[in-house]
């Protein structure tokens, strides 16, 4: 971690290092410049959350208004609804994104036929590679008023349901479709972890008379539990991101009450209504809380699971 002073002459050392290491510094330049422009500039741009920003006056010319934008944010009639929706949708997604793939991975692990295993893995992994634009199109053809699901409902004698315009159904569809889209990813991680379980453990358990189900419960599950918990901890940072690419595509004013999330609110306030500072304030609130959560979750992950980003 820290560099050891192997040589005498402390003062001369750093200069010597630089001479030897300058190619490394040169290689870093392009990446650093890109991050400065596209990650760090916008970070400084959040000063606009404390201004009455207008694009014509830019950051330096706009008036400072202190915390007024944050007060306005709390006064937004929909603010707490949006926070509630965000938490509801994202927490459900976080939990199900781990549970569903975990169950599927455990079940797949019990399958003997390699061919069956491979085919089902490929099918479960497919939607992960598709864009939200494509998935959104698929969802609409399934759930719109004259879509496939409603076709099935009418043929069963039930009434049609406005799935995408219903505050009951929209969040469910958003959550389930998100799990469907991304479950392949965690499933693969879990399967890899399961195959890493020491076979000797299973053999000795089998000798002691444990059947495959008992082995799955008492050996496989405990050995992959750390990974599951770690992924759970690491997803804490995304608790305020409920899936903008998905929601923006599918929602409509009829379901704002149940589907409007922080990111879509920021989008509408800023880029549709041009209330730049107010929307930047909402965005800053999100970034700040997420930052605390991410740092907190990384600390836990590093401390208990030996996780290292770098």
């Amino acid at each position: 971690m820290t560099y050891k002073k192997e040589r005498p002459g402390k003062a001369a050392a750093p200069k010597g290092h630089f001479k030897r290491e300058y190619p490394f510094y040169l290689m870093m330049i392009p990446g650093v410049v890109f991050l400065l422009i596209f990650s760090y500039f916008p970070m400084f741009g959040i000063v606009m959350a404390f201004q009455d920003f207008s694009p014509l006056k830019s950051f330096s010319g706009s008036d400072w208004v202190g915390l007024r934008n944050f007060k306005d944010m709390l006064m937004l009639p929909t603010f707490w609804t949006v926070v509630r929706n965000t938490l509801m949708i994202s927490l459900s997604k976080i939990v199900l994104r781990l549970l569903v793939p975990l169950v599927i991975a455990l079940l797949l692990n019990e399958i003997m036929s390699i061919k069956f295993k491979r085919i089902s893995q490929t099918v479960f992994f497919l939607p992960y590679f598709l864009s939200w634009a494509v998935i959104g199109g698929i969802l609409r053809s399934l759930f719109q008023y004259d879509g496939m699901v409603n076709g099935i409902l009418t043929s069963l004698g039930a009434e049609r349901i406005m799935f995408l315009g219903s505050n009951t159904w929209f969040p469910v569809i958003a959550i389930v479709s998100d799990v469907w889209k991304d479950m392949g990813y965690n499933m693969i991680i879990f399967l890899a972890a399961i195959t890493n379980v020491d076979p000797a453990l299973h053999e000795s358990a089998a000798l002691d008379g444990a059947n495959r189900r008992q082995q799955a419960w008492h050996i496989t599950l405990p050995t992959i539990r750390p990974i599951v918990v770690m992924l759970l901890v690491l997803s804490l940072g995304s608790v305020l991101s409920a899936g903008m690419e998905q929601i923006l595509l599918l929602y409509n004013p009829m379901v704002y009450e149940s589907a409007d999330i922080i990111d879509t609110l920021v989008y509408r306030l800023g880029l549709v209504n041009h209330q730049w500072s107010l929307s930047a304030a909402v965005g800053l609130m999100k970034s700040a809380i997420s930052f605390v959560l991410v740092v907190f979750s990384y600390r836990i992950a590093t401390k208990y699971f030996d996780y290292q980003v770098f």
Binding site: P42, I46, V266, L271, V295
Partner: peptide, 20 residues
């Protein structure tokens, strides 16, 4: 490393990025 990792921890959000 910190310079790089920090961009994963914090971001300015959609609106400042748009302005930039």
């Amino acid at each position: 490393s910190w310079f790089f990792v920090f961009t994963m921890l914090f971001n300015g959000g959609m609106i400042p990025a748009y302005i930039v």
